[in-house]
C-alpha cells in the first residue's frame, strides 16, 4: 500500500477522497454481481466490473421482461377474483 500512498501524494485532497470512494463503490458493485462475487479479492479490475455490471443489468432486464410475460399468462389462467390474481396484477402494474 505504500506505493499507493506515495503515488497519491501529488494529488489534491479531494481527488484522493474521490478515488477511494470510487474504488469502494466499485467493490460494492462487484459484490452485487454474482459472477464476480466469487472471485473476491481485489483481483478484478474496475473496467471488468463495469462491463459485467452492464451485462448483468441487461440480463436482468431481459429476465424481468420474460417473467412479466409469464406472469401475465398466469394471470389470464387464474380466477380473476382470487388473491393470487391480485398479487400477480400488482406485480405487473395493472
Amino acid at each position: 500500500m505504500s506505493s499507493r500512498r506515495s503515488s497519491r501524494s501529488r494529488q489534491s485532497g479531494s481527488s484522493r477522497i474521490s478515488d477511494d470512494q470510487i474504488s469502494d463503490l466499485v467493490s460494492k458493485l462487484q459484490h452485487l454481481i454474482p459472477e464476480l462475487r466469487r472471485r473476491r479479492s481485489d483481483k478484478v479490475s474496475a473496467s471488468k466490473v463495469l462491463q459485467e455490471t452492464c451485462n448483468y443489468i441487461r440480463n436482468l432486464h431481459r429476465e424481468v421482461d420474460d417473467l412479466s410475460d409469464r406472469l401475465s399468462e398466469l394471470l389470464a389462467s387464474t380466477d380473476d377474483n382470487s388473491a393470487e390474481a391480485a398479487i400477480i396484477r400488482s406485480l405487473l402494474n395493472y
Binding site: 474521490s18 463503490l25 443489468i57 429476465e63 424481468v64 406472469l71
Partner: peptide, 27 residues
C-alpha cells in the same frame, strides 16, 4: 460524474434484483 453513476447503478441493481426475486417466486 463517476460517483453518482456508480451510486445510482448500485441502487438500481439492488432494486432490480429484488424485483426479479419477487417476480420469479410469483411466477
Amino acid at each position: 460524474d463517476k460517483v453518482s453513476v456508480l451510486d445510482d447503478a448500485i441502487e438500481y441493481m439492488k432494486s432490480l434484483q429484488l424485483q426479479f426475486k419477487v417476480m420469479s417466486m410469483m411466477g
